[in-house]
Design a protein around this nucleic acid. Structure first.
Lengths: 156, 156
DNA sequence: CGAAACATGTATGTCGCTATACAGTCTTTA
DNA sequence: TAAAGACTGTATAGCGACATACATGTTTCG
């Protein structure tokens, strides 16, 4: 579906005559959307979407942290983070433990089953990123990241 | 909110030790999200979100086209496009006209008020893109677009 | 100590999009 | 011409995210 707009953005190399929805900004958002969709698609075999997979991998790596901290790290709101934890907890992939030092807080930790699934998440991620980077050199990736960060910094 | 994850992605220049949610792909999606939010924010003064603004500008430029074609051009589904048209039509910014050649089709056209608002949309877009590009050369933008397209093409 | 200010996690409502199914309308083809 | 198929726009349900409001618990400081 997005491919039609995708191919039309190919004309944005000369920008003067390109309408707003065919410019670099649109290409950027379109690329992000395609990547997110493909992530979701590949994680579907694990019955996870991208948010759940990221949460699981994060918790598996960093262990018992509060939901608020996880939410900040993952760039979602606290409510969304709570929902994702609810879902993963229902499937026994993570578990909530009370924080001994602060009774408001739940510390989220990975279970054995969650750790196992997390390994598969990381594996899929590695394969996907390799696919994504085909034909793109390390230097180009670094410049891409640098440009993206500079664009973001222009918004503060 | 996304800024915390944003600043953490700044460490992704050396990728080997960076966890999955801090890599270039995340930087890309994060940048897209920030751009979308800022677009919404700037169009809010016109009581439009990004989708509505894009639709309005598109219709103002290309005139009477079917909803399906507009949906394809804008990269959304037909149902979503219909909803956006509903909204803009309620506010008398666009109007639906029957296609004389095909009774299934509504041709969407801009009204005088819509054309006027569309000019403001374009103006805001120009200012925003100038802000976004501060300190980024034309050559860099072209390379950015090229890299993004190559990444997208790797997914087909 | 005690009260105000703050932090955490949850519930609720809203928003925008997708996917699906549908009725109405062409278009193709036998 | 008739039947099969394809296309258009819409209704509906579902998902995932956000903002807001709230109850609960904690910290600060007079």
């Amino acid at each position: 579906m997005a491919d039609s707009s995708t191919s039309s953005t190919a004309t944005s190399s000369h920008e003067l005559d390109a309408p707003p929805w065919q410019r670099v900004e649109s290409t950027l958002m379109s690329a992000a959307s395609v990547i997110r969709q493909e992530y979701d698609k590949r994680f579907a075999e694990l019955d996870l979407n991208l948010s759940q997979a990221m949460m699981l991998a994060y918790v598996a790596e960093f262990g018992a942290e509060s939901q608020t901290r996880i939410a900040d790290r993952l760039g979602v709101g606290r409510a969304a983070a709570g929902n994702i934890v609810d879902n993963l907890e229902r499937r026994k992939l993570v578990e909530r433990q009370p924080d001994p030092d602060d009774r408001r807080v739940w510390l989220v930790n990975v279970t054995a089953a969650g750790k196992e699934l997390s390994d598969k998440v990381i594996e899929i991620d590695i394969v996907f990123r390799a696919d994504l980077r085909k034909g793109i050199s390390r230097a180009e990736r670094q410049q891409l990241a640098s440009l993206l960060l500079r664009i973001q910094e222009n918004l503060n």
